[in-house]
Amino acid sequence: MNQSVPAPRFSAPDAIDRRIIAATQTGLPLVARPYDAIGEEIGIGGAEVIARLKKMLECGIIRRIGVVPNHYALGLTANGMSVWDVEDEHIAKLGRRVGALDFVSHCYQRPRHLPLWPYNLFAMVHGTSQAEVDDKVAAIAKLLAGAVRGHDVLVSTRILKKTGLRIAA
């Protein structure tokens, strides 16, 4: 369900797609026929809205459609951005294994900025307490043992801004 897959037949969104995106990026209307409602708003039929959403889902413009839980409100108040200095030749394989852990919400390879920043694997870990986050980071350390030269965990101390991504029509 959540696994991102390579995009088949990617095509860039056209003007109508972009209007659908603009109309739905903050959410779907909570009515019995939400796609008809969107269609009405932008002047196309509900069936076309469905067909276009389906295509955007298939080619990866849409990751998924559903509820987006608020980690924080659901009790997962502790999080840590765990960062790892993984040997380059092993990162593809190990990154996938870390990303598959069910307590990791985002997992990316990113560039190092030496000497300040030696870490190239970022894995966001969530838990109900800091101790739980620490345990989970320890589990990642175990998984990466032998291929990792160092790691750190950056705990967020404050949310300074949180908005959705905005896309103009």
């Binding site: 995009a7 779907l28 849409i62 990751r63 459609i65 509820v67 987006v68 839980p69 608020n70 896309i167």
Partner: peptide, 28 residues
């Protein structure tokens, strides 16, 4: 769903877009 969203237990309900696939740039 409406109640969960009103109580902020959901941050959103609907399509989750992949900003990079929209042709833009996204970075940390």
């Amino acid at each position: 769903i409406s109640g969960l969203a009103d109580d902020k237990l959901l941050s959103r309900f609907g399509p989750m877009y992949n900003a990079e696939r929209l042709g833009g740039a996204l970075s940390l």
